[in-house]
Amino acid sequence: MGTLLEVEDLTVWLATRNGPRKAVDGLTFRVDSGEVFGIAGESGSGKTMTAMALLGLLPHAARTSGRAVFEGRDLLAMKPRELRDVRGRSIAMVSQDPSTSLHPMLSIETQVTEHMRHHLGVGKSEARGRAVELLSTVRIPDPERALRAHPAQFSGGMRQRIAIAVALACEPRLLLADEPTTALDVTVQAGILRLLNRLRQERDLAVVVITHDLGVMSAVADRICVMYGGRTAEIGPRETVLTHPRHPYTRGLLDALPHPEGGAATLRPIPGSPPSLGAVPEGCPFHPRCAFAVASCREERPEPVPVGSDHRVACPPDPLGGEA
């Protein structure tokens, strides 16, 4: 499998009242074609801004640096017009809440076909035929009729399936799924995750799943990047990161997950709360909440360093190293 997207030292500054602040700070990762890459972190950790930066949809007055090479071209250096031709066509997005991301007043047909017709130049009837196929691919019953309907006439899970069909319309190579299951019922979540998994196998589609939910990660991701305060804490294959975490933050996230056999007593929350934009502490951003913090953590910014095959951790004291 070749590398589809290579992000190097991505930094995003957002304009705030107190001047520009780093929302994403020196992020480096790659996504191979056909894989599911997970970006995990609490809200405010810079996950969504990473996706927006790749699509060129950052808020006004935001700035980026670094490189994001997709199919040989740097997305961050593209002109708006070039980027628009990539968006929706080669890189598509599925966002968190389908009840707000689908247009409430446009028919499903318009929403599934409009960018198909724009990017691929197909006619109305051909686009319609493709839309019917897409809707049956994502398991919408009676697709012909669904095309004439509007989002309000579907349940949340069905809407997310439609949103996925919209994203797939131009047969993209990369799908950015930002919290694709967060707004859905737990029972519906599993169905959406199975759908994403099936699609990437059938279509050789790479998926970047952005979520705060490590349960979702363990269900779909091949490799995981754990973000904290806009920086990479730990990045590596799913098995390694979830079973032998080397960063105290990853460990904290896992300890905060409920276990099927354990009671409430086994839940160990991470003390404190994640830093807000512009208030990221000096040194390691996690040190105020870290049980293992030593003096150097307060001063030096840790860079992710390799600790195993394809596994990088930004924690020089490496207190969990012995356990692995």
Binding site: S95, T100, H103, H115
Partner: peptide
Amino acid sequence: DYVRAARAKGLPERVVIVRHVLRP
């Protein structure tokens, strides 16, 4: 959100404004 979604589809800004913004 649906305006961001329309932009994420790579539609020309004119279409985004007229179809997705002006109508509502």
